[in-house]
Design a protein around this nucleic acid. Structure first.
Length: 879
RNA sequence: GGGCACUUAGCUCAGUUGGUUAGAGCGUUGCGUUCACAUCGCAGAGGUCAGAGGUUCGACCCCUCUAGUGCCCACCA
């Protein structure tokens, strides 16, 4: 009646299904006072971004949460959007222009920014299309961009507020400078990488003497800016230098000697050259001892005019040249291998140069305090929990945040200077005239803000803040934030601070930190390494659901995932399995039979064991899946569903049902289990479940339009039955035992085989007789009898708890082999009995272990003893 | 220098109030298939849970140490 194709083809329907959801407005979150809200804000991907496996994992997890909670009856909002990604985007567009031979300076600021907006129009929503391909049920009508009008207003508002509060200041400090991007970076944007470098030992002559002291440095080029030498006051080696002056080699600048306990006597020679304009430690010493700051480099890290002969050289070139010159003058002693951590630009990986320059900063300590409290008080929880400590350690040692960037793409700093009187004005809107002198000669600060200065407002700016919109009121605070560990400091911590400061409330309740997607060797996937597995390729090859299901089921909570392409077969095969099971059921379903309420039906019908069993398993598993989703254990949830659908429902129940499929009870159970399984699976595999669900016979009203707006199945606790599950397990064991005998003795399925089962007691006999047909059919027996039986000659035997299964094997059986088989079984059981017996004899065990554990052990022992007795009997009369 | 994670079957990985016989996928061995599915079915083989010590009646699980691997943070130039 309702035909499905023989194999599942994801490409035929995914796009149409998605379009339908979107058109019907099912992704839309409304402010609905009669429902409870559930909201998530997406970690906004960069507009330069293209979908990679990290996104695939991150956004699949969010979609699972959103779809699950939508089905659970929450008013659901998944807020999507993109990040303008200041430096990254500017770099991309600069590169594009470079191909046409154009520099951004040729265009000028305004035209260059126009160029980026144009680029964004053409390419900036690629990632959004790809997220749709992934099946994400984001509320696209609300899609935000960190540079759109509303969010820009939020940024200005925040800047002005923090400035007025004294939490934003401008200062001349050592910051991380990327000479390639030619901008300041925050501490987080400078990534430390171990580098094999050299530690150079250089002589610094003592003025007016033949003496010298030796200084060790990794960056000799910065010596051009040296103003002092520092030693530890406890260092006896340098005691006598107190009143002397040193000479800077080559430039012959006079250098002071300062004594400071900060200097490590054990490192190098114990003498530190002090270059306040080029090193953070030296900067600090410079402040303390009021030293001159001599900047010897240009913005591109070439040496400036102070560097004399070295002017114009790149920093590394200058390093070589200086070493050569020092050698010529006999001032070079040696260089030794030295491995140390060097900061690199997180965008272009150029070595960062510590540089003295005027920048804007946010004072973080006051912002951090409430954010620390929110986590300490448990109002925000991290999953896995260990990230709490990482967060708190960072927050407790937080340093001020450098927020100004010397680039053009971004939120321009709302600070205006009067060129006449020097007044500084911090305002959301540009002033017409100077507030102090009244003249109109006003200039805006040329810098823009760090990209993260807009991202940290994301959980409320996207809902309309600073306006008090109904959405903000309804959906804030959000429920879960799903992200990767790399951006805990960049983003998560700062969002918490911003939330506490501007909303006076946490931005989200749970933070789920998932692992990093790596290649099979454990290396992080990156385009430049060429080790990426492209999710879109995988979608083409295996289908979206396969991608989603596979990546989720192989990623355990918070662990990194090592990916290889063949892992996607798991999801594809599972989809096909489900498809074919559905196909089979639909082929056999009589519509008029199934329109019943399952609970009523269950109460009023005498269901047979397999039906009672599969329903019990359905609800047991459903219960577990819900629990796992609540604990962010997505792989466990996925695996439970996989195991249930494939191995319990398909392998056992459907196989059993084949012979009884025309009966009403079987029809009902097949349909109900399939239908509820589809719902349970829908958050993980939205497309195939929708497609099959659309083929199911059902009412045709609007509420019945799509599986994604159906309620999550309710766990019917009274249908869960330990007895049914235990009984069925016993039947399965008997069938498996007989199949095993067939396999061991190499009896092809085509060959007839019969069996006898020896039972003790009426109850067992009744139980077997009730399930006789099922056992017979699934073990391919021509005849099966149960009762008080003795073993026929030439039989193989298998003991299943209290049952002895005899399979006559005239002409096939080899008694030595059978004896060996039983012996092996006997050994296994007797060794287990031994260990249980020892345990039960142990007084400490019986006195200390809980009652139920002891009872279980006793029962187990009794079972095993019964089994071994039967095996021994059979061993005795083999033949 | 500080911190975190990992080490379980040939491979990739699951495994929490500590309690029978440690699981899965892939691979592998044997058998099978017109009758939902070879993207399949049935039955197997395969593990001293990194090593050492400790706590406990009982440890893959808790504690200590060791070894190896990976990651994060850090102003030893």
């Amino acid at each position: 009646m309702r035909e499905l194709a023989k194999a599942y083809d994801p490409h035929k329907s995914e796009d149409a299904i998605y379009k339908n959801w979107e058109c019907k407005g099912y992704f839309r979150g409304k402010t609905n006072p009669s429902k409870k809200p559930y909201s998530i804000v997406i970690p906004p991907p960069n507009i330069t971004g293209i979908l990679h496996m990290g996104h695939a994992l991150n956004d699949t997890i969010q979609d699972i949460l959103v779809r699950f909670n939508r089905m659970k009856g929450f008013e659901t909002e998944w807020m999507p959007g993109t990040d303008h990604a200041g430096i990254a985007t500017q770099n991309v567009v600069e590169k594009k222009l470079a191909k046409e031979g154009i520099k951004r300076q040729d265009l000028g600021r305004d035209k260059f920014i126009d160029e980026i907006w144009r680029w964004r129009k053409d390419y900036g929503s690629t990632i959004i299309r790809q997220l749709k391909k992934l099946g994400c049920s984001c509320d696209w009508d609300r899609t935000r961009f960190t540079m759109d009008e509303g969010l820009s207003e939020a940024v200005l508002e925040v800047f002005v507020r923090l400035y007025k509060k004294g939490l934003i200041y401008r200062g001349n400090y050592i910051i991380n400078w990327c000479p390639r991007c030619q901008t300041a970076l925050s501490d987080e944007e400078s990534q430390h990488k171990d580098v094999d470098g050299l530690l150079y030992h250089i002589k610094y002559p003592v003025k007016g003497s033949k003496e010298f002291i030796v200084v060790a440095t990794t960056r000799p080029e910065t010596m051009l800016g040296d103003v002092a030498i520092a030693v530890n006051p406890k260092d006896k080696r340098y005691k006598d230098l107190k009143d002397k002056t040193l000479l800077l080699p080559i430039l012959n600048r006079e250098l002071k000697i300062i004594y400071d306990p900060l200097v490590d006597m054990k490192f190098g020679t114990g003498a530190l050259k002090v270059t306040p304009a080029h090193d953070p430690v030296d900067f600090g010493l410079g402040q303390k001892y009021n030293l001159e700051q001599i900047n010897v480099m240009n913005e591109d890290a070439t040496i400036n005019s102070i560097g004399g002969d070295y002017e114009g050289m790149d920093r590394l070139e200058a390093r070589e040249a200086i070493i050569t010159d020092l050698k010529d003058r006999g001032l070079f002693i040696k260089s030794e291998a030295h491995r140390h951590a060097v900061g690199h630009c997180y965008r272009c990986h150029t070595m960062v140069e510590p540089r003295l320059s005027p920048q804007w900063f946010v004072k973080m300590k006051p912002l951090a305090e409430p954010a620390i409290a929110a986590v300490n008080e448990g109002r925000i929880k991290f999953y896995p929990e260990r990230w709490t400590k990482v967060y708190l350690d960072w927050m407790n040692n937080i340093r001020d945040w450098c927020i100004s960037r010397q680039i053009w793409w971004g939120h321009r700093i709302p600070v205006y200077y009067c060129k006449d009187c020097g007044e500084v004005m911090v305002l959301k809107l540009p002033p017409v005239k100077c507030s102090k002198c009244g003249l109109q000669n006003i200039e805006q600060d040329p810098d823009v803000l760090d990209t993260w200065f807009s991202s940290w407002l994301w959980p409320f700016s996207t809902f309309g803040w600073p306006k008090e919109s109904p959405e903000l009121k309804y959906f804030y605070p959000t429920n879960s934030l799903v992200t990767a560990q790399e951006i805990i400091f960049f983003w998560v911590a700062r969002m918490i601070m911003a939330g506490m400061e501007f909303m006076r409330d946490i931005p989200f309740k749970d933070v789920y930190i998932h692992g990093t997607v790596r290649d099979i060797t454990g290396t992080k996937m990156s385009k430049s390494l060429g080790n990426v597995i492209d999710p879109l390729d995988m979608i083409k090859k295996y289908g979206t659901d396969a991608l989603r299901f596979s990546i989720v089921s192989i990623t355990s909570q918070g662990q990194d995932v090592f990916l290889s392409e063949n892992k996607f077969e798991l999801g594809r095969n599972f989809a096909n399995k489900l498809w074919n099971a559905s196909r089979f059921i639909l082929m056999n379903l009589k519509e008029e039979e199934i329109a019943v309420d399952l609970c009523v039906f269950f109460k009023e019908s005498e269901l047979a064991l397999p039906e009672r069993w599969i329903l019990s398993r359905l609800y047991s598993n459903l219960n577990d899946v819900e629990r796992c989703l609540g604990e962010y254990k997505f792989n466990e949830a996925a695996n439970i569903i996989y195991e249930f659908i494939w191995h319990e429902f398909c392998d056992w129940y459907i196989e059993i049902a084949k012979s009884t499929i025309t009966e009403k009870s079987v029809q009902v159970v097949l349909y109900k289990v399939l239908e509820k399984s589809l719902r349970m699976l829908h958050p993980f595999m939205p497309f195939i479940t929708e497609e099959i669900w659309q083929k199911l016979p059902r009412k045709n009203d609007a509420a019945d339009d799509s599986i994604m707006i159906q309620p999550w199945p309710h766990v019917q606790k009274d249908i869960i039955s330990n007895k049914a599950e235990g009984d069925m397990k016993c039947v399965i064991n008997i069938i498996t035992a007989i199949r095993n005998i067939r396999s061991v003795w190499n009896i092809p399925p085509s060959r007839e085989m019969s069996a006898l089962i020896n039972v003790h007691g009426k109850k067992d006999e009744e139980f077997l007789n009730e399930n006789m047909e099922m056992i017979k059919r699934l073990s391919r027996l021509s005849s099966l009898e149960a009762g008080k039986k003795s073993k026929p000659k030439n039989s193989a035997v298998s003991v299943v708890v209290t049952f002895e299964v005899y399979v006559p094997l005239e002409g096939v059986i080899d008694f030595d082999k059978e004896r060996a088989r039983l012996k092996k079984e006997e050994e296994r059981i007797s060794s287990e009995i031994k260990s249980i017996a020892a345990r039960l004899k142990n007084r400490h065990f019986t006195s200390k272990a809980p009652e139920d554990v002891i009872e279980k052990q006793k029962a187990r022992k009794a079972d095993l003893e019964l089994q071994i007795k039967k095996i021994k009997d059979n061993l005795r009369n083999i033949g």
